[in-house]
Amino acid sequence: MACMNEDGQWIVLMGLLVAVALFFLALIINQSALVGQTTAEGVLEFPKNDIRDLRSAVFDYIDASCDSGVKEDIVAISLERKNAVVSFTADVTPWDNNLYMVDLHYNNGVTVYNETVYY
């Protein structure tokens, strides 16, 4: 081994070069695949439509003079069918009898959403 011929090592070097190039290519491809995946998953996982629907349901509940049965329905069915823990309160604001302060909490295990809105 004292007199090792190192002439052939450029072939290995070229092989490494190609390998590194391939890795970069894979990196880019994975990134672009991730763009589509994360967008679709982001949309699917963030329950934008559910939260909007819940808000409008709470506003309907206020319009229907805050029936306590309706509130229990929303909480129970959310938990059972939507796997979401929902709680909300609606109180008349002291300065306006027609304005309600709505405190809304939503948690489906992935997304937590809290909002205080005047309606």
Partner: peptide
Amino acid sequence: AAGLIMLLTAYIVVSTTSIYTTGDTH
């Protein structure tokens, strides 16, 4: 050696990207 390195890399690349293509169904 060079051929093995390249083929291995290509195999790894193909296998990793093909996992992510299942994300398309989302």
